[in-house]
Design a protein around this nucleic acid. Sequence first.
DNA 1: CCGACCGCCTGCCTGC
DNA 2: TGCAGGCAGGCGGTCG
Length: 281
Amino acid sequence: MPELPEVERVRRTLESAMVDARFVRVLLNREDLRQPFPAGFARRLRGQTVRALVRRGKYLLAELSSDDVLVMHLGMTGWFRVETASGLAGRKPDRDAALDNRHDHVVFTMSSGLTVTFNDPRRFGMMDLVAARHLTKHPSLATIGPEPLSRRFDAAALAAGCVNRRIALKVALLDQHVVAGIGNIYASEALHLAGLSPFRRASTLATRSGQPRPGCVRLVTAIKAVLRRAISLKESDRYRASRFRVYDHEGEHCSTPGCRGTIARAWQAGRSTFYCPVCQK
DNA sequence: CCGACCGCCTGCCTGC
DNA sequence: TGCAGGCAGGCGGTCG
């Protein structure tokens, strides 16, 4: 599920459920996800108020009244469910059947009466708790790249991440140090919108001295457009195949106006890449 | 620095 | 209907 747009939507949901509320109960159904929960995790959360819920790349950061920060990552299959306590008690059997509780690993009961449940079948997600003043030293966040939707992410910033790098452009977009929050889907989507081949070297977007070339400007614009659109997609459109231009559209006609190409699929760095061999140069 | 590969896990889809 | 194999949107590691 989760690249930047999906994580941003989760953030908004959690923000309304958790900000200004206290952790009343913290239930861990196991000792680890991708990594162990830190020592005293539940105890350090209990009684703390959530001051703010922010996102950094694909990470969610809950800023607590204790000046600790709860760092959360959804991995590949992680998601949060928000329910009222009465809704939990009165759940209907048919809904029970549809709901897979087996992978409910963490349950926060908030002072608002809402419960926030983290469910993650593959357990590639993680949670950590760090002092706010050490947040910038957190191994996952210390060297992370710019926020793609911020003003600071411009052609110069992308060029700086690409200069002299021999890796494929698609692989560079997946590198969270170049730009934060882009995953396999939106890397393919942005490259298609920008008309750039996923196979060209990242270094071709910049001059040797790091000045952005025209394709770099187009790619920055495309990244912002693709991510913004995905964030604002209506609920009813979110799971429609048409939400993507190329991802999972192998064998279909290219949607670029005037292009007669067919969407192809390739492998890069162990991941599938979807692209149009005709209009992506 | 780079590409290729592996491991972490479970679920789902395909083909036999 | 069962089973094996391949694949999945992330990330961190090793090796040559």
